[in-house]
């Protein structure tokens, strides 16, 4: 990527800085989860993760709409779009998991166990689940299930970060490199504007505000120089 005096030669390359900030945000989420692991308090993580999900959703929606959909007959563009679907699904699974009640997780756990046992005499799964839940509540109990849920969440959060990282690397290697030499600068600026300014929101500058608060001085200058041209 060419910065030349902290000015992006190709405006599309703002995606590198955005990706860097997203990964930093994902690492922050992981730390919030691990630092609250013992007390089981999900609220700090939940707030940070919901923000991450909002950022990611905006970013990939814009890329689908204004970037890859404009690149016709490109297998790389289609792969990019399918990776976006996977990212959306994984992020919404995580939100679903921390919204789930421990008692539901416990019941699901019991049912999975019954199914895995492959026994013929448990046609009445509901009845057996009830009996197992009684045993579980006397043995494992809710606090232990909460720890299990935290571990499951952590695994999913790390998995999402690695998926993001792989995807960003693919996008930078196969999409940005197609766009930079072939798309006029004005068109690239238009994509950059959509990525940075959320027109659907009352505070359309919320992404820029967040980036400025996260970027180091050099990256802030690059962003500010780009904004002057939007």
């Amino acid at each position: 990527m060419k910065y030349g005096k902290l000015i992006l030669v190709d405006p599309i390359n703002i995606m590198h800085l955005l990706h860097k900030a997203f990964i930093a945000q994902s690492i922050k989420c992981e730390h919030l989860l691990t630092s609250n692991f013992t007390c089981g308090n999900l609220i700090p993580f939940q707030k940070a993760f919901e923000f991450s999900e909002r950022l990611l959703a905006h970013h990939i929606n814009i890329e689908d709409l204004y970037m890859t959909s404009k690149i016709l007959d490109s297998p790389a563009a289609r792969v990019n779009e399918s990776e976006h679907v996977e990212l959306r699904d994984k992020a919404s699974d995580i939100i679903g998991l921390f919204a789930g009640e421990n008692s539901i997780i416990l019941a699901n756990y019991a049912q999975k166990t019954i199914l895995a046992s492959n026994r013929s005499e448990h046609e009445d799964i509901t009845e057996t689940t009830k009996a197992i839940l009684t045993v579980l509540s006397q043995t494992i109990g809710q606090p232990k299930m909460a720890k299990r849920k935290m571990r499951d969440l952590y695994e999913r959060v790390v998995s999402l970060r690695f998926l993001e990282s792989d995807h960003f690397e693919n996008e930078e290697s196969f999409i940005a490199t197609q766009i930079a030499p072939n798309m006029p600068k004005e068109k690239q600026l238009e994509i950059a504007k959509h990525l940075l300014v959320d027109q659907s929101c009352e505070n359309s500058g919320w992404i820029i505000e967040w980036l400025i608060s996260r970027f180091d001085l050099d990256d802030q200058r690059i962003l500010n120089n780009l904004i002057l041209h939007l």
Binding site: T113, S117, A131
Partner: peptide
Amino acid sequence: KNTNNALIIWFTGLSKSNHD
């Protein structure tokens, strides 16, 4: 008997699912 049966089903399933 019911609890006994539930325990055995649970242990068998638990063992298999964890193992797999």
